[in-house]
Nucleic acid binder design. Structure first.
Length: 504
RNA sequence: GGCCGGUUCGUCUAUCGGCUAGGACAUCUCCCUUUCACGGAGGAAAGACGGGUUCGAUUCCCGUACCGGCUACCA
């Protein structure tokens, strides 16, 4: 029983990866690494109508950004290749035919149009134990008839023959014992007319061939699990079946239902890991990365959405998550996604991560915003100074631009109403003093500021805000004298002079 | 409709029968701060409902209600 743990994440490349999918990746990854096992990424591209160019590359980039690299995949290789189901097409057929031989499946020749007709005329029509005797399939036709149609290459599918009134049970690692009556499920298509397997056949065959030991997927798969269990029983034996765990869904923050791609735009937060542009519609879906999230924070809040380690700890690094994760502690109930809490995680990570770990991203952000950075040491000092007040990486733009270029706009109206000659004289005196300064360091700057204020009988508070506006352009930023220190003597004095002129 | 799953503060959650029901986000008050944050102190805020079982149920069982998922030659 010392089988190496092998788990897989099996997305279909039909679009961007949203947080539900990313959390499934995360839980797979954490479980694999916690157990010293392997994490496999398999591309489930069995629906050729839904193929979206670029989606596959996008998936890999998301995983890379989060640091959740697969051990085996289309990109990483591995001994169970190919890892793309479209390239495994021929493998599935033999298993479908095996099932027919064993009487567990049958050929069905009903056309999509005929089925559609049925569904239109009969409410809740199901292709199942009750109706299959009236349909066009190898169960209702003679062997010769079937053989003839097959030889004539008449379009057909292979369907599983669900047993009548039997109970299928299995133990879900999260939910415990689950039971289903086989009559409830319809006769699912296993092999489509184009020769491609459906999900149902493909998962079972590939999980077997790839020696998957634990299969995690979203709760929406629970109702079709009896089909998969049966397939395991018929094809490979229940004793070889992976342990299942159906993960709770991530729900919309407002109202009802599982979180969908559209909810982001509607509610003003990202639902994708990274920006995703639909190649057909050209529509852009926003991602957490571009919104200014750190991968550490992204992973952290994803992990806590439905899982906790039983203590009150909330901030976990990837390594800690790997160490502490257990699938049994995953919740049964779905969780509403809370963007405010997600931002809090990001803030926490910005505060505790060393500046160097995200300095490059901030630099890029600033440069994209048109702020030229040519002094990395200064940037480091600035980030250190302002990181406590930045929730998202993008907040660094507003909070730090003025350190590198003169503010484009000075909120002069915040000074004007209370401006007078007396205050002006104060600043003239301040300039004179600062010009004579031999050292340039915030305590000294603050001291002389206060001394001048006292000498000119002015309350420091009355001139502190004007000074701030002069240096940063608005009512924000860290302590004024810290700013002045970083800005340097020349810049600080220039800023004061310039604003004094504006106030004339 | 049928089947399956779920149900603790507004939100994420702790509790493996003893609860004055704990924490976090958000919110409110105060302190710190002559900007905004950070930080600190405190407040308000929950066991869907009804039956059992038990000395004792948030915890176990049953029913009801509500929420969600599935019900395609999509995954």
């Amino acid at each position: 029983m010392n089988k190496k743990v092998r788990v897989r994440f099996a997305p279909s490349p039909t679009g961007g990866l949203h947080i539900g999918g990313m959390r499934t990746v995360l839980f797979n990854y954490l479980f694999a690494k916690h157990n010293n096992g392997y994490f496999i990424l398999r591309i489930e591209d069995t629906d050729q109508n839904r193929f979206v160019p670029g989606a596959e590359e996008y998936i890999f980039e998301c995983l890379k950004w989060c640091g959740l690299e697969p051990d085996e995949s289309v990109m990483h290789g591995g001994e169970y290749a190919p890892y793309r189901q479209s390239e495994r097409k021929e493998m599935y057929k033999q298993y479908a035919e095996q099932l027919i031989k064993d009487g567990k499946a049958y050929y069905a020749f009903d056309t999509p149009q005929e089925l559609e007709e049925k569904r239109k005329t009969i409410l809740n029509f199901q292709y199942n134990h009750a109706s299959r005797n009236e349909m066009k399939n190898s169960l209702t036709m003679s062997d010769d008839e079937t053989k003839k149609l097959l030889e004539e290459n008449v379009a057909h599918v292979i369907r599983i023959k669900m047993p009548y009134d039997e109970t299928v049970s299995f133990t879900d690692m999260i939910r415990g014992e689950v039971h289903f009556n086989t009559s409830q499920s319809d006769d699912k298509v296993l092999l489509k007319a184009d020769g491609m397997p459906t999900y149902h056949l493909a998962v079972v065959v590939d999980d077997y061939l790839m020696k998957i030991t634990h299969a995690f997927r979203g709760e929406e798969w629970l109702p079709s699990s009896p089909v998969h269990i049966l397939l395991w029983q018929y094809l490979f034996g229940l004793e070889n079946m992976p342990h299942w765990a159906h993960l709770p869904l991530i729900l919309k923050p407002d109202g009802k239902g599982k979180l969908s791609k559209r909810d982001g735009d509607r509610l003003g937060f990202p639902v994708f890991a990274m920006n995703w542009t639909d190649p057909k519609t050209g529509e852009l879906m926003h991602g957490f990365r571009e919104r200014g999230f750190l991968p550490e924070a992204f992973i952290n809040f994803l992990a806590l959405l439905g899982w906790n380690d039983g203590t009150e700890q909330e901030i976990f690094s990837l390594d800690e998550l790997i160490e502490k994760f257990s699938i049994e502690r995953v919740h049964k109930a779905g969780a509403k996604f809370d963007y405010e809490k997600a931002k809090w995680f990001n803030h926490e990570w910005i505060k505790r991560l060393p500046v160097t770990s995200f300095q490059l991203q901030v630099k890029q952000l600033l440069q994209n915003a048109g702020v030229e950075i040519n002094d990395d040491e200064k940037l480091k000092t600035v980030i250190q100074l302002i990181k406590d007040r930045c929730v998202l990486l993008t907040d660094f733009i507003q909070q730090s631009s003025f350190f590198f270029q003169s503010p484009k706009e000075i909120d002069i109206n915040a000074i004007k109403p209370k401006w007078n000659e007396h205050k002006k004289q104060f600043f003239v005196e301040l300039i004179r003093t600062y010009q004579l300064a031999t050292t340039w360091q915030h305590e000294a700057l603050e001291n002389s500021f206060k001394e001048i204020a006292a000498a000119s009988q002015i309350k420091p508070g009355d001139v502190l805000l004007p000074l701030r506006i002069m240096l940063v352009g608005g009512k924000f930023g860290p302590h004024v004298f810290n700013i002045a220190e970083v800005l340097g003597k020349e810049e600080t004095i220039n800023h004061i002079k310039r604003t004094l002129q504006l106030l004339q």
